[in-house]
Structure formats: C-alpha cells, structure tokens
Design a binder for these strands. Sequence first.
RNA 1: GCGUCUGUCGUCAAGCGGUUAAGACCUCGGAUUGUGGUUCCGAUAUGCAUGGGUUCGAAUCCCAUCAGACGCCCCA
Length: 413
Amino acid sequence: MTKMIKVLKGTKDILPQEVEQWHKLEKNALEIFTRYGYKEIRTPIFEVTELFARGVGDTTDIVNKEMYTFEKSGRSITLRPENTAGVVRSFIENGMARLSAPVKLWYKGPMFRYERPQAGRQRQFHQVGVEMFGIKEPAADAEVILLAVDYLKSLGLNDLEVEINSLGCPKCREEYKKRIKEVLKPELENLCEDCQNRYEKNPLRLLDCKVDSCKEIFAKPEIQKVIQSDFICEECAQHYKELKSYLDKLKIKYIENKLLVRGLDYYNRTVFEIKSNNLGSQNAVCGGGRYDSLVKNLGGEDTPAVGWAMGMERLNSLLPEIEPQKLDGYIVSNSPADAFELAEELRAKGLNIEFDLANKKFTKQLEKASKTARFALILGEDEIKANKVSVKNLETSEQVTIDRNDVTDKIKG
RNA sequence: GCGUCUGUCGUCAAGCGGUUAAGACCUCGGAUUGUGGUUCCGAUAUGCAUGGGUUCGAAUCCCAUCAGACGCCCCA
C-alpha cells in the first residue's frame, strides 16, 4: 500500500458528527453579538509579520517562538496567531475611527500557533472574539464582559468563573514592576529558571509560578505586602472600581485575581478570563481586556478599545453532544428515475430526502431507511401507476398509501 | 523547547518470547427477489506505527525515528 498521508501535528479535521456543535457556536455568536450591535468582520488569515511583532509585542512567547512565518517575494508573512492585531489593522486602514463610536466588531476563524499540542491546545485552532473601539469608560469593559457571559449562557454554560484584574496604565505598572523586582532581587538566584527569565521579561508573570520553592519565596510577608499592595494610580483605580460596580449591578459574579496577567503586551487596565473546571490544565475559555494604546501603536489615531476572544475547541468540549439529525424521508423504490422525481419534489418543499442511488434490493433499502430516516416513502410499481406513495412511519410502523401531493403534510405532521 | 505515558482491523480492544493474532461494534453479503429497525449465518489484519537489533523463534525484549495523549512553559 502506498504511504498514508496524515494530518499535521496539532491540526484536526472537524468531522460531520461534530459539525452540528460548531454550527451552534456560530449561530449563537451571530445572534447574540448582533443584539449588542456588533458587526462581523473577516480579515485575512495571514498578514505582514511586522503587524504581530508590533501589535502583540515582540517580547511575547507568541511572537518569539510560536508564529508560522514564511518568506514570499521578499516579504515576511505570518499566519495570524490571534485576530486582534488584524482587526485593529483593518480598523485603521478603513478609516473606522471616523465612524461614530463605539465601533463594535466580531470575528470567528482559525488561528495558528506553533506550540506543543495538549488538551485544549492545537496548532490550528479557532476563536470567536469581539472588539469595541472608541469608548474609554468602564461601561464598555462591563458590556463586553456581560456579552461574553450572555453568549456562554446561550450555549448552556452557566457556571463558569469570571476572573478580573486591573493592570493599571503603563505608568503605574512600571512602578509596580520596579517594586516587585526590588523586593525579589535578594532572592533572585533562589528562583527557578523560568522565574529568572520572567524577572527581566515580565515580572508580573512570575507571581503565579507553580514551582513549590518559588511559591515559598513569594509567600514571605514582605513580598506578599508588595504583591498585594494597590499599586495602580487613582484614575486607574477609579476605572476598576466603576467596572466592579457595574458588574455587581449586572449580577455578574467575579473573582478578583491579582495574579491574573495576560501574556499579550497590549493590555492595560482591565483584564479578565473566564474559566471552567472541566477542561484540564488549559482551563480558560475566554480571555480579554482593554488595549487603549494598540490602535495608536499600529499607526492609527489614539483610540481606546476593549475586547476578548474565546477558544472554540474549548467551548466545544464543554458542550453536550448533539444527536445527529435524521432524514425526513428515505425513498424505497426500484425505479431510480421515479425516485429522483419524487425526491426533487419533496426537497423543493424543504424536506431532507434521500434514496438508494445503487438501486439495491427492496429489503436493503428499507433497512437503510429505518436507520437513517423518520419515514420510508415506498414508491413501487403499484404506487407509481396510481400516482401515490406509501408512507411508513418507521417508529410506529404505521403505513398509509396516499396521494403524492399529500406526502409533505403527512411528514410534517 | 523540556518531562511522563502510549501506538494491535474503520472503531473499542485481548494477547505480555513459541497462538492459525481472541472478541465486540461498524461495514458488506446471505437467510428474505415489495416491508425495516430484532434474530441467525458468513466475509473482512500474510499483519501488530516505521526502521534496525537481540533470539532457534518477536506484536511481545532493546535502540532509533515518527505519531498520539497528558503535564511544564505560554495561551483561547
């Protein structure tokens, strides 16, 4: 046998038996997001590499080691590892800053990250996400979180945990980083290798290290004091406070998590995640936050923005399996020409109809009908002559011979 | 990039150095040339991820490669 070709590591076929669930995710997204005034946008799945380097941030893992990048005609091109940068690019390029604020956009589609696959993580995966531009007030943050919760509810996912935090603005965050580095400096060589890296790259990150020896160090009172301190400036604190009061009013339960730091450089002030306990170690279904300086960084007018993305595969694994739909009718006939005709007639009326293209024996056809359809539509010589059809309900075994024109009504009940 | 575990039919698997490589499901055919979903019979891996090695003998032991699962890092 010639060698079989297999899917690439970390990629997957979405097979017919699971596609119903994907339809549900997409249908609900369109429906719910539309209610909140969002319009769908579809951006290319590849962009100039620089977009991600500048947008996502060139200190991030995503940009440093996870991008699918290739050269074409002397240009460096990258498969999108996330879609916020692309949407922002489009926002700027199409002059959307001139539209009346807020500009609300949503998207869905495949993303690509060269990572080691594991539960809830693939190299090609899908995200749905929303981005709102032009509103700096915390009400925007609140609405975006409410939308996420609403969408999850529409999928039957009611008891997920919402975690929030405020990163402050670049100014107050720098201060905080400095203080963390200061207090940890004496312990630096006792920290694990990862933490030593993070010490320089992203000091906020090292606070939730899972290594026991690091945990012990962080538990020291003088260090805890710095971690727990309210470092954010007055304005940022006010923003955060207002957000929380909105969430309270909206009865959205949330957990404040000081250690919640997102790994993308563009976030400021509000960050949040929505987690599930049923997902294994990659337990976040939704992640997002505010990114007020991204539009400007990518060459647009200074425009505040908030948004989030959800991993569709992760959502999917939380959804119950959907029973496959049965056909409305399966035509049992040894005259393919007549079966064709009847099938077309009924399909035109919106019914799902099939018949045996291989023209097998009568009993085989009935067997197939009973496995795949609600009704068997028997079209034998007698019926054809009389312009009738015998309609058999395959659940109750009840069978009647009726006029062709009455078949639709009989099936639709 | 690192760590742990795992690769036997389309699927789920038994087998643990000498078997004709169980069994079940699915699929296909027959009992049954106009009445199914139940039942009964039958078919379906010269092959055990791939390549080497050890051995009289390997699906079973060893090595390498590849693939998968899970975890770390990071993220949705």
